[in-house]
Protein backbone atom coordinates (compact mmCIF):
# COMPACT_ATOMS: atom_id res chain seq x y z
CA UNK A 1 0.00 0.00 0.00
CA UNK A 2 1.25 3.42 -0.87
CA UNK A 3 1.53 6.24 1.60
CA UNK A 4 -0.46 9.36 0.82
CA UNK A 5 1.91 12.26 -0.05
CA UNK A 6 -0.04 14.31 2.47
CA UNK A 7 1.52 12.21 5.24
CA UNK A 8 4.99 13.15 3.98
CA UNK A 9 4.11 16.82 4.07
CA UNK A 10 2.62 16.43 7.51
CA UNK A 11 5.86 14.80 8.67
CA UNK A 12 7.87 17.71 7.29
CA UNK A 13 5.51 20.12 9.01
CA UNK A 14 5.70 18.45 12.44
CA UNK A 15 9.48 18.07 12.31
CA UNK A 16 9.85 21.71 11.24
CA UNK A 17 7.85 22.81 14.27
CA UNK A 18 10.37 21.01 16.45
CA UNK A 19 13.31 22.49 14.54
CA UNK A 20 11.73 25.92 14.94
CA UNK A 21 11.19 25.33 18.64
CA UNK A 22 14.84 24.57 19.35
CA UNK A 23 16.25 27.16 16.97
CA UNK A 24 14.12 29.97 18.35
CA UNK A 25 14.96 29.16 21.98
CA UNK A 26 18.61 29.62 21.06
CA UNK A 27 17.97 33.15 19.76
CA UNK A 28 19.41 35.71 22.15
CA UNK A 29 16.70 37.92 23.72
CA UNK A 30 18.41 41.09 22.53
CA UNK A 31 17.72 40.00 18.94
CA UNK A 32 14.02 39.30 19.38
CA UNK A 33 12.97 42.30 17.33
CA UNK A 34 15.12 41.30 14.31
CA UNK A 35 13.76 37.76 14.81
CA UNK A 36 10.24 39.07 14.31
CA UNK A 37 11.13 41.09 11.24
CA UNK A 38 13.04 38.25 9.62
CA UNK A 39 10.33 35.67 10.30
CA UNK A 40 8.00 38.17 8.73
CA UNK A 41 10.17 38.35 5.64
CA UNK A 42 10.54 34.60 5.25
CA UNK A 43 6.85 33.88 5.75
CA UNK A 44 6.33 35.99 2.64
CA UNK A 45 7.65 33.01 0.69
CA UNK A 46 3.90 32.67 0.20
CA UNK A 47 4.73 34.73 -2.89
CA UNK A 48 5.42 31.43 -4.70
CA UNK A 49 1.70 30.66 -4.46
CA UNK A 50 0.91 34.14 -5.70
CA UNK A 51 3.21 33.75 -8.71
CA UNK A 52 1.63 30.42 -9.67
CA UNK A 53 -1.82 32.02 -9.36
CA UNK A 54 -0.85 35.02 -11.47
CA UNK A 55 0.76 33.01 -14.26
CA UNK A 56 -1.90 30.32 -14.39
CA UNK A 57 -4.20 32.26 -16.69
CA UNK A 58 -4.74 30.97 -20.17
CA UNK A 59 -3.18 32.68 -23.15
CA UNK A 60 -4.72 36.04 -24.02
CA UNK A 61 -6.39 36.51 -20.65
CA UNK A 62 -3.65 37.95 -18.49
CA UNK A 63 -6.10 39.48 -16.06
CA UNK A 64 -8.58 36.78 -15.12
CA UNK A 65 -10.00 37.20 -11.64
CA UNK A 66 -7.80 34.41 -10.27
CA UNK A 67 -4.61 35.95 -11.61
CA UNK A 68 -5.72 39.39 -10.45
CA UNK A 69 -5.70 38.12 -6.88
CA UNK A 70 -2.32 36.62 -7.68
CA UNK A 71 -0.92 40.00 -8.76
CA UNK A 72 -2.29 41.66 -5.62
CA UNK A 73 -0.74 38.98 -3.43
CA UNK A 74 2.59 39.36 -5.24
CA UNK A 75 2.64 43.08 -4.51
CA UNK A 76 1.83 42.59 -0.82
CA UNK A 77 4.34 39.80 -0.37
CA UNK A 78 7.03 41.78 -2.23
CA UNK A 79 6.58 44.74 0.15
CA UNK A 80 7.16 42.30 2.97
CA UNK A 81 10.12 40.48 1.46
CA UNK A 82 12.09 43.59 0.58
CA UNK A 83 10.92 45.55 3.61
CA UNK A 84 11.46 42.66 6.01
CA UNK A 85 14.95 41.66 4.93
CA UNK A 86 16.19 45.23 4.52
CA UNK A 87 14.91 46.48 7.85
CA UNK A 88 16.44 43.39 9.52
CA UNK A 89 19.73 44.15 7.81
CA UNK A 90 19.51 47.75 8.97
CA UNK A 91 18.86 46.70 12.56
CA UNK A 92 21.55 44.03 12.67
CA UNK A 93 24.12 46.49 11.32
CA UNK A 94 23.57 48.57 14.46
CA UNK A 95 24.50 45.84 16.92
CA UNK A 96 28.12 46.58 17.73
CA UNK A 97 30.53 45.35 20.33
CA UNK A 98 32.43 47.61 22.67
CA UNK A 99 35.42 49.15 20.95
CA UNK A 100 38.71 47.66 22.12
CA UNK A 101 40.62 50.95 22.16
CA UNK A 102 38.36 52.45 24.81
CA UNK A 103 40.06 53.26 28.07
Amino acid sequence: MEIDPFIFRLSIFILSIFVGYYVVWSVTPSLHTPLMSVTNAISSVIIVGAIIAALASTEGNTFSSASLFGYLAITLAAVNIFGGFLVTQRMLAMYKKKKKDKK
Binding site: P5, R9, V19, N40, V48
Partner: peptide, 23 residues
Protein backbone atom coordinates in the same frame (compact mmCIF):
# COMPACT_ATOMS: atom_id res chain seq x y z
CA UNK B 1 1.78 25.49 1.88
CA UNK B 2 -0.27 22.32 2.32
CA UNK B 3 -2.71 23.48 -0.34
CA UNK B 4 0.08 24.19 -2.82
CA UNK B 5 2.02 21.08 -1.76
CA UNK B 6 5.06 23.29 -1.33
CA UNK B 7 7.74 22.24 1.17
CA UNK B 8 9.38 25.68 1.41
CA UNK B 9 6.08 27.15 2.57
CA UNK B 10 5.34 24.32 4.97
CA UNK B 11 8.78 24.52 6.60
CA UNK B 12 8.66 28.31 6.82
CA UNK B 13 5.13 28.32 8.16
CA UNK B 14 6.09 25.86 10.91
CA UNK B 15 9.21 27.86 11.80
CA UNK B 16 7.40 31.18 11.98
CA UNK B 17 4.46 29.66 13.78
CA UNK B 18 6.57 28.16 16.54
CA UNK B 19 8.77 31.25 16.73
CA UNK B 20 5.79 33.50 17.39
CA UNK B 21 4.37 31.04 19.89
CA UNK B 22 7.63 30.94 21.86
CA UNK B 23 7.87 34.74 21.88
Amino acid sequence: GFTLENTALIITGALVGSSGAIL
